[in-house]
């Protein structure tokens, strides 16, 4: 899928913030027309095809539908090489072309998550992606978590490089509704709550490089559902190990 980002991006001034750890936020990401397509598609999937949402994340109170199901529709933008390269450029990382992503849905009253840094491995089938290609996870029976794959199927281990969360299909948000992405300076003071919280305002995003210190968590949504696209870019494992050490990788 070729995407002309110039034609669908509405905001060319994303905000880079240093605290509590480096991250980028942006509102009004896409043009109203394109955002409406995403919003409509999310509602259609929830209405017509709810079985694609699976509650499959231990300790994480959400259901998810793999991005691979939607590559031919408007959500295909998140699986495009143009989007991949743009996000890698904003984060300043050299990414592999491997993408794992899904549509997430939290029912109202979802519990707060535990702070984690996303510096996890991700497994992908086949050879490394070509420069114009994106390889998605959960292809050819290869488990993203590396625990299962069919006999004879080759797979590569990568490490998450960038986390991105895009809010779509949510009711209007006001302070007190919860459902934010909480960002933490460290684990020691995490019990006091996040140092920063990015609210689930439609057509906005938060993204950050995955490091040993990128502590973040879902904040309980009190009264409304919370919907989003969650995706990760990846880097070569040897680069991650050289930078932060093998002991920093958080294996599943």
């Amino acid at each position: 899928m070729h995407v002309s980002l110039e034609s669908i991006l509405a905001n060319r001034r994303w905000v880079r913030r240093d605290t509590p750890f480096p991250h980028v936020v942006a509102g009004d990401v896409f043009t109203p027309d394109f955002y409406t397509q995403l919003h409509t598609e999310f509602a259609r999937v929830e209405r017509d095809n709810p079985q694609v949402f699976r509650r499959n994340m231990a300790g994480y109170d959400a259901s998810a539908a793999d991005l691979g199901n939607f590559r031919d529709g408007p959500f295909g933008v998140f699986a495009s090489r143009q989007w991949h390269d743009m996000i890698a450029g904003v984060a300043g990382v050299s990414a592999t072309g491997d993408v794992s992503g899904s549509l997430h849905h939290h029912e109202p009253g979802g519990k707060s998550g535990w702070p984690h840094n996303d510096l996890n491995p991700g497994w992908f089938a086949g050879p490394p992606a070509q420069p114009d290609e994106v390889r998605l996870s959960f292809v050819d029976g290869v488990s993203y978590h590396g625990d299962t794959r069919p006999p004879g199927v080759a797979a590569r281990e990568t490490i998450r490089a960038v986390s991105l969360l895009f809010y779509v299909g949510n009711p209007d948000w006001v302070p007190g509704d919860g459902g934010e992405t909480g960002l933490f300076a460290n684990l020691d003071t995490a019990a006091r709550g996040p140092r920063a919280a990015v609210p689930p305002v439609n057509n906005s995003l938060v993204m950050f490089e995955c490091t040993p210190f990128s502590w973040h968590a879902f904040v309980s949504n009190v009264s409304n559902p919370r919907n989003s696209v969650v995706m990760w870019l990846h880097r070569r494992k040897d680069e991650a190990v050289a930078r932060w050490g093998e002991q920093s990788i958080v294996y599943w």
């Binding site: 880079r16 450029g89 904003v90």
Partner: peptide
Amino acid sequence: PDVPSQHESYVDPLQPLADLLE
């Protein structure tokens, strides 16, 4: 305030290395 500061700056996603006037 949501303005460039010593903790915050703007980035053009399509030209992330550009030196923005703001």
